[in-house]
């Protein structure tokens, strides 16, 4: 099977769309179920937009994660990078007299630096990505407390203004009990996140470099035989993932408006979980950022359902998230196994 590259590639593509379809269907079923069983809260468009507002950073991180996972790697440093970026931006704005643009450059710079170093170590020195990015996570988390120890809210005026900027979505608002019209809104971060998803999707599907990601992840040996520079592709995937982590860091910072060493705790695992729910496979070669986008939405819709169902105790969220992840994994594994049998 290994030498039938074109067939292999084609098969992986249909796997991608198959898993994507499952994800999207499950998300809509879940959301409609929530509307039926829990009623009004989920009917408001704002409930949906709030998920977007809260998770914009996660969406961006999940995009980068999917890219790395498609090439067959993994990056668990992203949560740490997000925390480091938000802390650095917070310190930069409040204590070092930076302006917003400098802060954005700083965020991108940090992300890019992590991507470059980790990508170099993984692609060219062939060290296991898990170990490299684990060290990256340790480094980012440690640096966050070295930059500043205590959490604090940013007072910088232009940032607060930017943070409170709300983009109204027409026709989606609702009339509240007093009879006033409350418009639905999204934050700037959501626009950035949607842009990132769209650009990544287009790049993965219709550009040469995008196809290389799938080829290298699906079967590295055949990709090299086809003349693809596998090392450069892996390097690039890590650079983009790092850059996205930087962008996500700033979006996260814009959403919370503070710096803290405990920010974005466990975000890397959420991103991996979202990517998996979205149909990206850790073995590489299969995946789609639209899926990851819906993965983030599904993951947080279930969290919202749990908390609004009155199961407020903290442990329920963990258990239901895990149960959902388990369900998805088993469904994926069964579907893939049946497909494999059918093809034989």
């Amino acid at each position: 099977m290994k030498n039938k590259t074109s067939q292999n590639k084609f098969k992986n593509l249909s796997d991608t769309s198959l898993l994507l379809t499952i994800t999207i269907i499950v998300f809509f079923v879940m959301y409609i179920g929530a509307i039926i069983f829990q009623g009004s809260g989920f009917l408001k468009a704002q409930t949906f937009f709030d998920i977007l507002n809260d998770q914009a950073a996660l969406i961006i991180v999940a995009c980068g994660m999917s890219l790395v996972m498609i090439t067959g790697g993994i990056d668990i440093s992203v949560g740490g990078v997000v925390a480091l970026v938000s802390m650095s931006c917070a310190v930069g704005l409040d204590y070092k007299g930076m302006n917003i643009f400098q802060a954005i450059l700083l965020a991108l710079g940090i992300g890019l630096a992590f991507g470059l170093v980790q990508g170099f170590l993984v692609a060219y020195l062939e060290i296991q990505p898990f170990i490299v990015t684990l060290a990256g996570m340790f480094f980012a988390r440690g640096m966050t407390t070295i930059v500043h120890t205590d959490p604090f809210n940013v007072a910088n005026e232009s940032l607060v203004k930017l943070k409170d900027t709300r983009i109204h979505v027409p026709f989606m608002g609702y009339v509240n009990k007093v009879g006033n019209y409350v418009p639905a809104y999204i934050e700037i971060g959501v626009i950035v996140a949607l842009l990132v998803v769209a650009i990544t999707f287009v790049a993965l599907r219709w550009t040469k470099v995008g196809r290389h990601f799938y080829a290298v992840g699906g079967n590295r040996q055949s990709a090299i035989m086809l003349g693809i520079n596998a090392k450069r592709t892996v390097f690039l995937s890590h650079i983009i993932c790092g850059l996205f982590a930087g962008v996500a860091g700033f979006v996260y910072f814009l959403h919370v408006g503070s710096g803290s060493p405990s920010h974005a705790a466990g975000m890397e695992m959420d991103a991996i979980a979202s990517s998996i729910i979205g149909g990206t496979m850790l073995t590489g070669g299969v995946g789609n950022v639209i899926g990851s986008f819906f993965g983030v939405l599904s993951l947080n819709t279930i969290k919202k359902i749990v908390s609004s169902a009155g199961l407020g105790d903290a442990w329920w969220t963990g258990i239901t998230t895990a149960a959902m992840l388990c369900l998805f994994l088993v469904v994926q594994s069964v579907v893939m196994a049946r497909k494999r049998n059918a093809e034989q």
Partner: peptide, 15 residues
């Protein structure tokens, strides 16, 4: 809480 940063440097050097 700053320990991981130093640990990371040593780990990277080792690997």
């Amino acid at each position: 809480d700053a320990l991981p940063a130093y640990k990371a440097v040593v780990v990277i050097l080792l690997v």
